[in-house]
Simulated scan of single mutants.
Amino acid sequence: MELIKDREFGGERPLFASHGLMLENVTVHAGESAVKECRDITAVNCRFEGKYPFWHVDGFVIKNCLFTSGARAALWYSRGLQMSDTLVEAPKMFREMDGISLENVTIPDAQETLWHCRNVKLRDVRVDNADYLFMHSENIDIDRYVQNGNYSFQYCRNVTIRNAVINSKDAFWGTENVTVYDSEINGEYLGWHSRNLRLVNCRISGTQALCYASGLVMENCTMDADADLCFEYSTVNARLTGHITSIKNPTSGHIVADSIGDIIIDGNVKAPADCIIDIRK
């Protein structure tokens, strides 16, 4: 592997179509597509300031690096990324990628990040300003995760999340086969139009949670006081701990809680309208 150390690059495509490079303490200044159409790249202690530095890259490792805000849309159309101990200030990262592993990564401006990606693994990751995160992505494995940003995980498939704090209005809309363990999810309109959403040992807050859901399962979850008007037009099997403020027009299934405030079953309930709602004895 060729070592490039203590160098600075700028302009257009300075390392275009390179193979087998070790970049150490390298700075890429303003310009475009510095490491485009490359493979087998390792970058350690590097700084990326220009746009689109890693497009169409096959197999790359990024350690202890900085992507400044100028390095927007930095990693697209690539495969086989391992990124660790890195600060990503640039927005719109990770598009149309296959095979992403992020560990101890912070993304303070994660708006429109991780779209149309496959086979994604996150460990000890924090994202902020993360509106429209994870659109149309699949095969996602997340542990030890903090997120602030709305409309996340829309239309995702095959997702497992553990030990997370997710602050997100409209999270998990239109998802399929998502399981969340031991996590806190805060935000209005959670999980609408989802299929096979499973929540285990989770705390839920926000109005009108989990409506229009199909195959919803909740195990040992708690609902905050503002989680009202839940389960409208959903098929649900839920065993809840504590009190739930209100339930409205579930379609079918079985809901059990320690106590329930209002149960609203009116003329708008959808067939078969046979959901069983119990107070735990």
Rank of each mutant, 00 (worst) to 15 (best):
residue 99 G to L: 03
residue 104 N to E: 00
residue 99 G to M: 02
residue 94 F to L: 14
residue 95 R to Y: 15
residue 91 P to N: 09
residue 86 T to M: 04
residue 107 I to M: 15
residue 81 L to I: 09
residue 103 E to T: 13
residue 90 A to V: 08
residue 89 E to H: 05
residue 96 E to Q: 13
residue 94 F to P: 06
residue 85 D to A: 11
residue 95 R to L: 12
residue 95 R to V: 06
residue 94 F to H: 10
residue 90 A to C: 10
residue 90 A to P: 03
residue 81 L to T: 01
residue 108 P to W: 08
residue 104 N to T: 04
residue 81 L to W: 01
residue 88 V to P: 00
residue 102 L to I: 09
residue 107 I to H: 07
residue 109 D to F: 08
residue 102 L to H: 04
residue 92 K to N: 13
residue 86 T to Q: 05
residue 92 K to T: 12
residue 84 S to P: 00
residue 80 G to T: 11
residue 96 E to T: 14
residue 97 M to E: 12
residue 107 I to R: 08
residue 84 S to F: 00
residue 101 S to V: 06
residue 103 E to K: 13
residue 83 M to P: 05
residue 88 V to Y: 01
residue 96 E to M: 12
residue 101 S to D: 00
residue 105 V to R: 07
residue 91 P to F: 04
residue 103 E to L: 03
residue 88 V to W: 01
residue 93 M to W: 10
residue 109 D to T: 11
residue 89 E to G: 03
residue 104 N to S: 06
residue 80 G to N: 15
residue 94 F to V: 12
residue 109 D to Q: 11
residue 81 L to K: 02
residue 81 L to H: 01
residue 109 D to N: 14
residue 107 I to V: 14
residue 103 E to F: 00
residue 84 S to Y: 04
residue 83 M to E: 06
residue 103 E to R: 13
residue 95 R to P: 00
residue 100 I to T: 08
residue 101 S to F: 05
residue 83 M to C: 15
residue 106 T to M: 04
residue 80 G to S: 15
residue 88 V to G: 01
residue 94 F to Y: 14
residue 90 A to S: 15
residue 101 S to P: 00
residue 84 S to M: 09
residue 91 P to I: 09
residue 89 E to C: 07
residue 98 D to N: 14
residue 97 M to N: 15
residue 93 M to R: 12
residue 98 D to S: 09
residue 80 G to Y: 08
residue 86 T to D: 04
residue 105 V to F: 05
residue 101 S to I: 04
residue 80 G to F: 06
residue 96 E to V: 14
residue 90 A to K: 07
residue 80 G to E: 12
residue 109 D to E: 11
residue 106 T to D: 06
residue 94 F to N: 09
residue 106 T to P: 00
residue 93 M to V: 15
residue 99 G to K: 03
residue 83 M to Y: 08
residue 97 M to Y: 07
residue 104 N to R: 10
residue 105 V to K: 06
residue 107 I to C: 11
residue 93 M to T: 15
residue 88 V to E: 00
residue 103 E to C: 09
residue 91 P to V: 09
residue 92 K to H: 13
residue 100 I to M: 07
residue 89 E to M: 11
residue 97 M to Q: 11
residue 96 E to H: 13
residue 109 D to L: 08
residue 81 L to M: 11
residue 94 F to Q: 09
residue 80 G to R: 14
residue 86 T to L: 03
residue 83 M to D: 05
residue 103 E to G: 02
residue 83 M to V: 15
residue 97 M to R: 09
residue 81 L to C: 07
residue 88 V to T: 02
residue 98 D to A: 04
residue 86 T to W: 03
residue 88 V to Q: 01
residue 98 D to M: 02
residue 93 M to P: 11
residue 88 V to K: 02
residue 106 T to E: 08
residue 102 L to A: 07
residue 100 I to R: 04
residue 87 L to E: 02
residue 86 T to I: 07
residue 103 E to Y: 02
residue 96 E to L: 14
residue 86 T to A: 05
residue 97 M to V: 14
residue 92 K to C: 13
residue 97 M to F: 08
residue 93 M to K: 12
residue 96 E to Y: 13
residue 99 G to H: 03
residue 98 D to E: 10
residue 87 L to R: 03
residue 90 A to Y: 04
residue 80 G to C: 12
residue 86 T to E: 04
residue 100 I to C: 07
residue 108 P to A: 10
residue 86 T to Y: 02
residue 94 F to T: 12
residue 101 S to G: 01
residue 101 S to Y: 04
residue 83 M to H: 08
residue 84 S to K: 12
residue 94 F to M: 14
residue 82 Q to F: 08
residue 104 N to G: 01
residue 90 A to L: 05
